[in-house]
Write a protein that binds this DNA or RNA. Structure first.
Length: 924
RNA sequence: GGGCCUGUAGCUCAGUUGGUUAGAGCGCGCCCCUGAUAAGGGCGAGGUGGGUAGUUCGAUUCUACCCAGGCCCA
């Protein structure tokens, strides 16, 4: 027989699982196939009656294409859902979208090229609805392309009439339960957009403001603090002179020390620690301290308003600091949140003589009609003329701006509707319930806890167009707010039937029960509230509109999974409403992830030009590469992505894919029922790798349970690269290819490979959703009725082949193998050998346990080292550290033309003069 | 400015309850193979552990400050 013909007698790998993935063309075909099979539907129905694990989707905003943040978030969710499904849970996943709110309004106004007052509300709302629905469908297709399994045909949308009705219902219930109140309160207000802004709608940016020092002369009580001083002035510092007309107090800190300082003809009271800085700032070089006291002693003082004829009290506030200013802080409860809080404590008047356009009202006296920004100059002049101005300059500092129009905004007291966080002990209950929720990572508990502890009441009203109306009516006669079971019932059913637009179509009477009269004055005429509800309320009650409303889900659910910014957003709004409405948290656990950064750890932005979009990654590499990236990073902190990182993932993917391919390729003639070899009759190395594989399964399963996907990734990857590719499979080639196809040795290897493949493909499946599916379909002996790996069960651990002792021995053998490799490399570099099969290795080992082990395993060492011959030699006990030495010589005999190993038996058979005796047996 | 968080080889991650020469895989360099072949294998070189100061016999691991970056808030 010729050399070439011997090749035909080998069992070389065969598989239709291609080396080249071509994910960008292959994945869409799988998606089509999954859709045709209704895989999501099957996934849910397969687990009917099983224990539930519901991950509740936080609704992304229906605006624009999805970005990496969306991709990360949805992929993490999908990994969880796929894993839990394989574990046997019923894990339905209903996706949602947040459809109302300012972003849609902004985009739409931009597209239409008009402003808030230039369009009919009903016409605008129709357009807004179309706009949101357009992006729902854009994003839905983009999410599907990522391989996310979800109830795409039946998502939840906050603009659905049923959802809107639930918003009305929840608001109504909270109202009737006493959580909602109407109050005058300063809020962020954009005078340009003429609207209140939510906290999330405020951006901080540099702004140039006046920086002035103003004296408030003490009119009474001075003797108590500074006996005998006669007269003095409290010095304050502010960057918003326009808030001075609304001044209602001056705040100090009781524990600070205050000095009375003579400056020229006047005596100023300033916090002692800030004295030098203030004097330098107002340009005073000479001054003398004439008295000193604690802030506490200032409490009974009254001071004269610097602009108008009135008096202000001194109050205490923790927010007075020594960072800047004078230690005396001007308080305008109508124009600042902290001021408001202080004012509430002291019963101060919430005064804000500024209208919605940012102009002073007639209550502001001589400043009436001026825009507040423009009034600063006039106010400063006025102070100067009254002799109360000590210094005036300008300062550039961080200042709130409107996220839409980018103009500086103001704090302005307006009538708003609030959810009282301290009503009925809500805050305290929330703080307690937080402790019973599992936060992943744990620091999330601390984070949301301190936020809830400090958060102000929730302003629920918005002066906008696109949202659900506040279901409140007012008596025309007396202004009484009307919210009753009766009105709510009418509103709720009208909204459920016709959508929230009905509020703006029908007259107020449509929502008034027959014969109803104002309980306060008996009035019969009513008008509707014009404001809408904050969109955070929309998504915040999804636990009622979705979890509680859909039988397949259920309230509460197992997990919320969002970016860490949602500690202030959705987690909190969901928690507060859920506790108020149902008395408990809507989730058992909350998992958060970080944000996407570029390769340098900087945030992505158009202007920096470092944006990487998911669509680009999918087009170039495929969704599985993106999914693998998601799994590879530690999402508990910010994650990075760059071309370099993606390149590495492509390499890693290829390694995993080729490992699967090699396993598949060597199982083409293996029938599990017919050919499996029981564990006790397997080759030792096969038992060893099975032991390792079971260990991998245990470690990976545990990592999935902890949502530690990057551990999963590293374990799988290292197993493929190290245990399999460079070791086990490399050694196995000889046996697989050259032994008789049905020999026990080869079947033993295949039995192991089949088990490895089953496990590997399944533990990859939640991550490599597409690749695992393709590989799985190629596995021999798979039950025909299972249409998808995603409908299969998680592997059950088989302890039969697990052996600590065996793994322990092998750890030592592998150390020897590493020594042999080094020696082989030296021989190779010296040109003595090429392929390691050209070598004969002699191991000299000192007497001891290792020697005994090597002698025991001597027969298999040549296979283990992939050389032709191995001899183990005992040497006398050597010095420490020189237990082992390896000698490499050319192999004995001739190279077998079939198995390529060197053997003295080559030439021994007349019929087959070019092959070794072992191969002769196989060929004959 | 405040709260929370991050900073270990080019990359992704380990680890150290303070203790001998800080690990893995990839990438990189050199080499081998050509029966996983747009694959496979071997060897090797890479880290002042963000910086400074302190506590300690000893710090990457503890403390303070600083720098860089992130989320949230002001």
């Amino acid at each position: 027989m010729e050399k070439k013909e011997y090749k035909a007698t080998l069992n070389l790998p065969k598989t239709s699982f291609p080396m080249k993935a071509s994910l960008n063309t292959r994945e869409p075909l799988l998606l089509e196939n999954w859709a045709k099979e209704d895989l999501y539907g099957k996934m849910v129905s397969l687990r009917k009656g099983r224990e539930k694990f519901v991950l509740h989707d936080g609704p992304p905003y229906a605006n624009g294409d999805i970005h990496m943040g969306h991709a990360l978030n949805k992929t993490l969710k999908d990994i969880v859902v796929k894993y839990k499904t394989m574990r046997g849970f019923q894990s339905p996943y209903v996706p949602g979208w947040d459809c109302h709110g300012l972003p849609v309004e902004h985009q739409l106004f931009r597209e239409l090229g008009i402003g808030k007052h230039q369009i009919d509300r009903r016409v605008f709302r129709e357009k807004a609805r179309d706009y949101a629905l357009r992006y729902v469908s854009v994003q839905r297709e983009q999410f599907k392309r990522l391989g996310i399994f979800a109830d795409w045909g039946n998502p939840y949308l906050t603009l659905d009439p049923a959802y809107q009705a639930k918003i009305v219902e929840c608001f109504g219930k909270l109202y009737l339960d006493g959580y909602i109140y109407r109050g005058l309160r300063p809020i962020h207000w954009c005078a340009t957009c003429e609207t209140a802004l939510a906290e999330a709608e405020v951006e901080y940016d540099e702004h140039r403001s006046p920086s002035i020092y103003v004296a408030f002369s003490v009119v009474s009580g001075l003797d108590k603090a500074f006996p005998g001083l006669g007269e003095a002035e409290l010095l304050i510092w502010t960057t918003t002179p326009w808030t001075l007309p609304a001044n209602r107090a001056v705040a100090v800190r009781p524990e600070f020390e205050y000095s009375a300082v003579r400056v020229g003809a006047r005596i100023l009271i300033i916090a002692k620690e800030l004295l030098d800085r203030v004097m330098a700032d107002i340009g005073v070089k000479e001054f003398g301290i004439v008295g000193s006291c604690r802030g506490k002693a200032l409490e009974k003082l009254r001071v004269r308003h610097p602009l108008v004829e009135r008096e202000s009290p001194i109050v205490f506030s923790e927010h007075v600091t020594l960072d800047q200013g004078t230690g005396c802080v001007h308080i305008a409860p109508g124009h600042g949140d902290e001021d408001y809080q202080v004012g509430r404590r002291y019963g101060l008047d919430v005064f804000a003589p500024v209208n919605e356009k940012g102009e002073f009202t007639k209550e502001a006296g001589i400043f009436a009609g001026l825009k507040v920004e423009d009034a600063n100059g006039k106010i400063i002049e006025h102070l100067r003329s009254r002799g109360t101005l000590l210094a005036s300059r300008e300062v550039v500092h961080s200042y709130p701006h409107c996220w839409r129009c980018k103009n500086p905004i103001i704090f302005r007291a307006t009538t708003q509707w609030f959810l009282g966080v301290d009503r009925k002990g809500l805050r305290e209950r929330a703080l307690a319930i937080i402790k019973s929720v599992q936060w992943i990572p744990e620091r999330g508990q601390n984070r949301i806890g301190s936020m809830i502890e400090n958060r102000p009441d929730w302003c629920l009203s918005r002066q906008r167009l696109w949202g659900v109306p506040l279901p409140i009516l007012y008596c025309e006669a007396c202004g009484e707010a009307i919210v009753t079971e009766g009105t709510l019932q009418l509103i709720r059913s009208a909204v459920a039937e016709r959508g929230a637009d009905v509020w703006f179509i029908e007259p107020a009477e449509a929502f008034i029960p027959h014969g109803f009269a104002c309980p306060s004055c008996g009035g019969k005429e009513f008008r509707k509230e014009e404001d809408i509800i904050d969109v955070w309320f929309d998504s915040g009650i999804s636990h009622q509109a979705v979890l509680a409303a859909r039988a397949e889900l259920g309230y509460p659910c197992a997990l919320y999974l969002e970016g860490s910014d949602q500690h202030r957003g959705w987690f909190q709004t969901s928690l507060l409403t859920s506790i108020a409405l149902r008395g408990d948290a809507p989730f058992s656990a909350v998992l958060t992830h970080g944000f996407i950064m570029d390769g340098e750890g900087k945030k992505m932005s158009k202007s920096a030009g470092n944006v990487i979009a998911p669509q680009g990654i999918i087009d170039r590499y495929g969704a599985d590469i993106l999914r693998l990236w998601v799994a590879s990073v530690d999402y508990s902190v910010d994650v990075r992505i760059s071309e370099e990182i993606l390149d590495h993932l492509v390499d890693a993917y290829r390694r995993i894919r080729n490992t699967l391919r090699f396993l598949l390729g060597n199982l083409y003639d293996f029938s599990p029922e017919r050919d499996s070899v029981p564990c006790d009759r397997m080759e030792e190395i096969d038992r060893w790798i099975l032991s390792r594989t079971e260990r991998l399964l245990a470690v990976v399963t545990n990592a999935y349970e902890r949502y530690d996907f990057c551990e999963v990734y590293h374990q799988i990857y290292n197993f493929c690269a190290v245990d399999l590719s460079s070791l086990y499979l490399d050694i196995l080639k000889d046996r697989l290819y050259t032994r008789a196809a049905a020999s026990p040795e080869r079947r033993s290897a295949q039995t192991a490979m089949k088990r490895i493949l089953d496990i590997l493909v399944k533990i990859c499946a939640p991550i490599l959703a597409f690749t695992a599916e393709d590989a799985w379909r190629e596995i021999p002996g798979r039950p025909e009725n299972q249409v998808s790996i995603h409908l299969s069960d998680w592997p059950i651990r088989d302890d039969h082949c697990v052996s600590e002792a065996l793994e322990g021995e092998w750890e030592k053998l592998l150390e020897v193998r590493s020594e042999v490799s080094k020696a082989l490399e030296v021989a190779r570099q010296g040109g003595a050998i090429g392929n390691s099969l050209g070598a004969r290795v002699t191991i000299s080992c000192a007497e001891g346990d290792l020697l005994l082990l090597l002698e025991e395993k001597e027969e298999m060492l040549a296979d283990l080292f992939i050389v032709s011959q191995v001899t183990v030699q005992a040497v006398p006990k050597a010095r420490e550290g020189e237990q082992l030495s390896v000698t490499v010589l050319n192999a004995e005999g001739k190279k077998c033309g079939r198995c390529w190993r060197y053997s003295t038996s080559v030439g021994g058979n007349g019929d087959h003069p070019t092959i070794c005796s072992r191969c002769v047996e196989v060929v004959d």
